[in-house]
Amino acid sequence: MIDINAEAEKSLSDVKCKAVFQYPKNFNNLPIISYYTVTECGGFYADNDESIQDGHIQIDIWAEIPKECSDLAAEVNEVMTKDSWVREMSMDIPENDKKIYHKTMRFQKYFTL
């Protein structure tokens, strides 16, 4: 079994801002990206052995300015698709009372074991 979070972290290492696992501890140094596994499962089996793993991750972008979210989303999409991830969706999350803008994205990738 492949560690999907480690694969996502490797892919996100080319993004210009900090990427953290699961959820930012604080929002003092925005923008920041967080990521975590949504699902992972066997993608293909032969002779009762898993040969392909299917992984889905969520990436959240947090910023003080809406344009930062959009610009980072484009950058995240570029680095992830360059590394064979497929974007399943992205959407803006409604603004909260802290004036932190939030965009969420989900990506999928098959891994050969």
Rank of each mutant, 00 (worst) to 15 (best):
P94N: 14
K18R: 03
P66E: 06
S51H: 07
Q108Y: 13
N29G: 02
M89W: 14
Y35K: 00
W62F: 12
E78A: 06
W62K: 11
G43I: 04
K10C: 03
N5L: 09
K67T: 15
A19W: 09
D71G: 14
D83E: 10
P66M: 10
L113G: 14
D3W: 04
A46H: 07
V15Q: 03
V20F: 15
L113R: 08
V38M: 14
V76N: 04
Y36P: 03
E88G: 13
D49W: 05
P24W: 15
I52V: 09
F107H: 00
Y36R: 00
I93M: 04
C17Y: 08
H56C: 08
F107D: 03
Y35I: 00
A46C: 03
S90I: 02
E75F: 06
M80N: 10
C41D: 12
Y36H: 08
S34D: 13
L72R: 11
A74P: 04
D97H: 09
I52M: 03
F27C: 02
M91V: 09
M105G: 08
K109P: 11
L113I: 14
S70Q: 10
K10H: 07
D14Q: 00
K10W: 10
K109H: 08
F44C: 01
M1A: 14
C17G: 02
G42S: 07
K98E: 15
N77T: 11
Y36I: 01
M1W: 04
K25H: 12
S90Y: 12
N48E: 15
V79Y: 02
Y45M: 11
S84A: 06
A63P: 05
S11Q: 07
E95C: 03
H56A: 02
L12H: 07
D14F: 03
S13M: 00
M105T: 07
L72P: 14
I32G: 01
T81A: 07
F27L: 15
E40A: 02
Y101W: 10
P66K: 06
V86F: 08
D83T: 02
K18I: 03
D47N: 15
A46T: 11
D49F: 11
I33R: 09
N29L: 00
G55Y: 15
R87E: 06
C69T: 12
V86G: 04
G55W: 10
